[in-house]
């Protein structure tokens, strides 16, 4: 299935609060043998990770950071899980792909159940569902009200990456992020020098599909600004 309704009552598993999340299960390679706990936190999130191509390319680029993909479609999540298990097994000797994993979940509803304030360095929104119909715009992954929640889990200076092949959606995401007081657009020059932009442009399955069809890819990156003084 290509779509899933983010407003439905899905059978979802999510922790009651971030402290209750059992991350050791997802990243066994990073478990501190003395405490049985993870030695670090997830700092990179790929929201709607699809088939996991982005994570797989980010993994060697950020070997010391934990990367989590979130995906709402069950079958797709199962596929990515299998894919990561296979990669870990095939690269067991080099201990690779230990820093990525995937969770089935509804990020629009339950992101704060997983991540505490200012936990994340980077959030990726790659080729999100465009929800063309006007009355379904609240189902889009970037809305002014959801951006406040993304700003909560991002640390100051953290980056939101967006890429899409739908120009209307690109304009929508840019205008909402630009209007949000906690985000500032990063320059084209910054984009050209950032390795994640390069990976994001070429790594994902959707991105490859667009490239095959010689379609356009629209990229916009935004920095999380410090909170203004509370009035």
């Amino acid at each position: 299935r290509a779509h899933s309704n983010p407003f439905s009552d899905h059978q979802l598993e999510y922790p009651e609060c971030p402290a209750d999340m059992d991350w050791a299960r997802l990243y066994p390679g990073f478990v501190d043998s003395a405490t049985g706990k993870l030695s670090r936190e997830v700092t990179i999130a790929d929201i709607g990770c699809g088939f996991g191509g982005l994570m797989i390319d980010l993994s060697p680029a950020f070997p010391q950071e934990l990367i989590l993909g979130m995906e709402i479609r069950v079958q797709v999540t199962n596929y990515v899980e299998d894919r990561i298990i296979a990669l870990r097994t095939n690269h067991a000797r080099e201990q690779q792909y230990q820093n990525i994993n995937v969770l089935r979940g509804n990020a629009m509803k339950f992101l704060p159940n997983f991540f505490h304030k200012a936990q994340l360095n980077k959030m990726f929104f790659c080729f999100p569902d465009p929800h063309f119909k006007q009355r379904k715009h609240k189902a889009r992954i970037v809305t002014s009200t959801l951006l406040s929640e993304y700003a909560y889990v991002l640390k100051e200076g953290g980056v939101v990456y967006t890429i899409t092949d739908v120009e209307d959606l690109h304009n929508w995401m840019v205008s909402h992020l630009e209007q949000h007081p906690l985000f500032k657009r990063l320059s084209k020059e910054w984009e050209q020098n950032d390795k994640c932009v390069e990976i994001m442009t070429n790594a994902t399955e959707e991105g490859k599909k667009v490239a095959r069809k010689q379609g356009a890819k629209y990229i916009a990156c935004f920095e999380r600004l410090p909170d203004p003084e509370i009035i």
Binding site: E16, K117, S148, E149
Partner: peptide
Amino acid sequence: RDEHIKVSHFPQSFIVDKWLFGHK
């Protein structure tokens, strides 16, 4: 309806202060 109690600043309501977690 999703167990959440959210505390946001006002009038700077774009700044989420915290969530109160515990409802099931």
